[in-house]
Design a protein around this nucleic acid. Structure first.
Lengths: 274, 274
DNA sequence: TTTTTTGATTGATCTGGGTCAATGAAGCGA
DNA sequence: TCGCTTCATTGACCCAGATCAATCAAAAAA
C-alpha cells in the first residue's frame, strides 16, 4: 500500500533485467524459448495459434515479440501504465490486481501458461490493473498494433483472439458468481478445483497442487480474510479432503471436494436465496 | 427458480411476437427504428460505429439485422442457447443472469442503450447466461458470421469491437471489486452513481433516476439481500442523500453519495484490509 | 369492484466470517 | 549463526448483514 507512482514504461526496466540475467550463469529455459515459435509451442492448442494453419502461424510469429522473463514480485505492467501489448503467459504464473484510491487491493485473477492478459487495457489505452509475477515467469508479448495488422490478414486469428478474450470474460463471470453467492468454504473448494482443472489442461498433476500464491492472495481473491482461509484449510484437512503442507496441497477426495462446491446444504432443503 | 429447459431457438418466439405486435395499433417507435441505420443512430458514438467513416458504416449496416423488440420479462436468449449473434441495446434495458445448478441466480449486469451483450458466448458457442428485458426493449442483432466477414474488410470495426468488448471486461472488474471489497452501503452508492453516470452518457437526467429493475434484482446484483437494500434506501433517504419513491430515486446530494462510495471510515484511520 | 399476487418496507433475532491478538515457522540478509 | 521480517495458524470475541416474520401497497386477476 505504498508507491503507486505510475511508470509509463516498465519495459525499460525489464530490458535491463534481461540483459543482466543473460550475463549470469545457467539460465537454460530462456535460451531455449527464444528460439521457439508459436508453431512449436507446447501451449499452442490453448493459446492463440489454436486452429490456425501453418502458413498463418508464421505470420502470427511476426507479431510476437521476444519473450520477457519476470522474477517473483516483478510487474509486467502497473495500474495506469500506457497500453502497448497483450501478453500470453508462457511459463510461471501471475496475478492481476486493482488497487482502489483508498489503498486496498482486489486480486482479479491468477494466470497460468496459455492465458491472455491485458485485455482490460484495450478500452481506454491504459492498464486498469497491475500484473505481477508470482514466481519466475515468462510471457510472450504481442504488440497490439502489429497484432491488429496480422489480424486483418489472418481472419482466423481474429476469430481466435475473440474466443480467447471471451474465455477471459467467462472466467470473470465465474469469479463474480463465487463472490456473490458462495459461502467461504465453497469458495475455497471452487478455487482449488478450478486450479486443479487448469493444471490438468497443462498436463500437470491435478492431485498435488503447488500454490504459487500466498494465503493472503488466496483470501483476497476469494473476498475473504487470511484467517478464514487458514481455518478452512485446516478444517478441510481434518475432514480428510485435503493434505495441506504450506504451498503444497493435495486433493485426497476429489468427489468430496466437488460436493463442497455446490451450496452444501447438509440439512436444509431449499437452497438459500440471498 | 423453475424451468431451465434450454430452448435452442428463442428466435422463433421473438419472430412470432414481432408479427403479432405489428398487427397491433400504435407502436411508432418500432416503425421509426426500422428505417434507421447505424450512421443515423443517436447511439453511434457509444456503440460500434464510433470512429468509423461513412463508407465503412454502410458496410457495417449489412451486418446488422433488423432490430428485435422485447417486452418486459422476455428473454433475448437463455442460458445454454446456441450462439448466433451479439446484440447491442438500442432502447430499454436488460439484465444478464447466470443460474447455478442449485437454482440460485446471480445477476451479472444491467445493460443500457449502446451496450453490447453476448460476448461470453464466443468462448464455446453457447450462451452461459440469460438476457432478460426489464422493460420494453429493442436491440440490434449482429449475426456473428456476418460481423466477422465485415470485420475482415473493415479493420477499424475490428478494433472498435475489441474496444467495446474490453469495456465489458472493465465493467465486470468493477463489479468484482465491489463484491470483494465494498460494504453494503458503499455498494448501493456505487451502483447508483454508476447508473447516474451511464444515464448521463445517454443525455438523460442524472439526478432523478428511474430504476427499471426490482429491489430483488438490485440486491442480487450487489450480492446482498432485498431487506438490506430496502433498509439502505431508507437510511440514505433519512440522511437526505436520496429521495426514494418506489422506482424513482433522486440524488439530492451527489457529493455525499460520492463520499459514500469510498471506504467511508467515519472514525478509523487505516482502511480495512480484508 | 374485490381478491390475489407480488413487491417493498420494517422489526427482532441470529450467525458466518471479520477483527484483534498471540504464537510458530520459514526464509533471508548480514 | 542470529535477528528480523513475512507468512501461516489458532483462539476469543464481535458485528454487519442474513434470516425469519409481519405488515402494507400496488398491480394484476377475477
Amino acid at each position: 500500500m505504498v508507491d503507486l507512482l505510475f511508470r509509463s514504461l516498465d519495459h525499460t526496466h525489464a530490458a535491463e533485467r534481461a540483459m543482466k540475467r543473460s550475463a549470469l550463469p545457467f539460465d537454460p529455459i530462456d535460451l531455449h524459448q527464444l528460439k521457439r515459435s508459436c508453431g512449436h509451442c507446447a501451449l499452442s492448442e490453448l493459446c492463440l495459434p489454436a486452429g490456425i494453419n501453418q502458413a498463418d502461424l508464421e505470420r502470427l510469429d511476426t507479431a510476437v515479440r521476444d519473450k520477457r522473463v519476470l522474477e517473483r514480485g516483478d510487474h509486467l505492467y502497473r495500474q495506469g501504465d500506457a497500453f502497448h501489448s497483450l501478453y500470453v503467459v508462457r511459463s510461471g504464473s501471475l496475478k492481476t490486481v486493482v488497487e482502489s484510491d483508498e489503498g486496498d487491493a482486489q486480486i482479479l485473477g491468477f494466470h497460468l501458461p496459455g492465458e491472455l492478459i491485458g485485455v482490460d487495457a484495450l478500452a481506454n489505452d491504459h492498464h486498469l490493473c497491475a500484473a505481477e509475477a508470482l514466481e519466475r515467469t515468462s510471457v510472450c508479448e504481442l504488440p497490439y498494433t502489429q497484432l491488429q495488422q496480422v489480424m486483418t490478414e489472418v481472419p482466423s486469428l481474429q476469430r481466435q483472439l475473440m474466443r480467447v478474450v471471451s474465455r477471459e470474460v467467462v472466467a470473470e463471470q465465474r469469479h463474480l458468481v463465487m463472490m456473490g453467492r458462495q459461502q467461504a468454504q465453497e469458495r475455497l473448494a471452487i478455487f482449488l478445483r478450478s486450479l486443479s482443472e487448469r493444471y490438468g489442461r497443462l498436463s500437470r498433476d491435478t492431485v498435488t497442487l503447488t500454490l504459487t500464491m500466498s494465503r493472503y492472495d488466496i483470501a483476497n481473491y476469494l473476498g475473504l480474510v487470511v484467517e478464514t482461509v487458514s481455518r478452512l484449510f485446516t478444517r478441510m484437512e481434518a475432514a480428510g479432503v485435503l493434505a495441506v503442507s504450506r504451498k503444497t496441497v493435495s486433493i485426497l477426495k476429489p468427489d468430496l471436494l466437488a460436493a463442497m462446491c455446490g451450496t452444501q446444504d447438509s440439512g436444509k432443503k431449499e437452497p438459500t436465496r440471498r
